[in-house]
Computed example of a mutant assay.
Amino acid sequence: MLEALIFVGVPHSLLLIATIVYNKPISKPNKFLIGWFVVCIYHLTFYRLGLDGKCIGNVWQSLGAAMPIFHMVIIYLYVNALHKTVAKNKLLYSGAICLGYWMILIILNFLDIIKVDVIAILPGSNSNILALVVAPSFLLVFLIFVLLIVRDVKELGLHLQSIYSDRKKISTRWLTYWVASFLVISIVIIVGILLSDLGIWPLRSAVKLVCFLLSMQIFFIGIVGIGNGYLLNNTPESIRYQKSGLTKDGFDSLKVRLNQYLTETKPYLNSELKVQDVAIDLNVPSYQISQVVNEGFNKTFFDLINEYRVDEFKRNLNDQSLDHLSLLGIAFESGFNSKSSFYKIFKSHTGLAPSEYKKRIKKS
């Protein structure tokens, strides 16, 4: 039973790949996600064979050792694809890093300079300075990609703010947890090797723990992906202001229309309002709406819509027909959909908690 739980990531990965393929068309980010699931399948299979003591040959054994680099490169490309076009040269460089590292491991393993174990790269019988460089270079490349991913996750958060008005939709915590889990796995591997050398913890146990954590990663991505729609839908288009086709007069005209639309129609009362909804109502491309919001109002879509919601809340406080509602009830009437997001957004716009603001206006 325990063994099955450890390697449940393999059938789960196959199921998630089938889910993505079934829900066509397959977006660019999801193509990279399929690649990551394939890497996970091989990685877990590699560990399974290693635990069983089966030899799979130098080429495939070296590929198994290079898997952590493959993981980080594919996640890096996936995060990139969520909010912008992935340039061909970026694909080529990323592919070259993965294949290059794999080839280096094959050659050094073949020359017996290193020995590729199940989760460790050990010195071989012909060990020299190269054997001492391989592991640190591996960690360096791994950490570089972690930093690149963290940078791109921050950029993605800003991009989502230009599209959604709902705080839940702009959260990128799940990506942060995803990357952090790889750091945890890396620490488990390093500690496992050290404790194994000291005879304190069997290396086999460390491998099983790594497999379990990787399987839990796959489960987590599946839950988050389906729950947030990442596995089922294409992600929002990238914004290209330079090609938006808006002239100065067109820009000014759309800004006036947007301001009038928000004031008179009050679409912000829809707690899940997104830029595509506004674009449909105004019959213009969504990237033009984003351009006007970002450059004309000097705000993100998230900030602009929630500014209107805060103003609506202030007006509703003075509406005697709503006196029977609590502060949270009035917030829901104003377009907010959760207590935490309302309190945080209101205080960021006014500098006061809602209850403090209410006391002040009553005194005045």
Rank of each mutant, 00 (worst) to 15 (best):
E3V: 03
I6R: 04
V10A: 09
I17S: 04
A18W: 14
V21A: 14
S27E: 03
K28C: 11
N30C: 03
F37P: 09
F37Q: 09
F37T: 09
Y42S: 08
L44C: 10
R48M: 04
L51S: 06
I56V: 10
L63W: 04
P68T: 12
I69W: 08
F70Q: 11
F70N: 01
I74L: 12
Y76A: 02
V79M: 01
V86R: 05
I106L: 09
I107M: 14
L108V: 14
V116Y: 10
A120V: 00
I121R: 03
P123A: 10
G124E: 06
G124T: 07
L132C: 07
L132E: 15
L139G: 09
L143H: 01
V150P: 04
S162A: 09
T172Q: 06
W174V: 11
V179S: 06
F182M: 00
F182T: 02
V188G: 03
V191Y: 04
G192A: 02
L194N: 14
S196K: 09
L198A: 12
I200D: 13
R204C: 05
S205Q: 15
S205N: 15
V207R: 01
K208T: 03
K208N: 08
L209W: 06
I218G: 04
F220Q: 02
I226Y: 13
N234G: 00
N234F: 02
S238L: 13
R240V: 12
Q242D: 12
Q242P: 01
Q242R: 13
K243H: 11
K248S: 15
N259R: 04
Y261G: 08
K266A: 13
K266V: 11
P267C: 04
L269F: 06
L273F: 13
L273E: 08
V278N: 07
V293K: 11
V293W: 00
I305Q: 07
E307F: 05
K314L: 11
Q320R: 01
H324Y: 13
H324D: 10
L325H: 03
S326P: 06
I330R: 07
G335L: 02
S338I: 10
F342H: 06
Y343R: 02
S355Y: 15
K359L: 15
I361L: 01
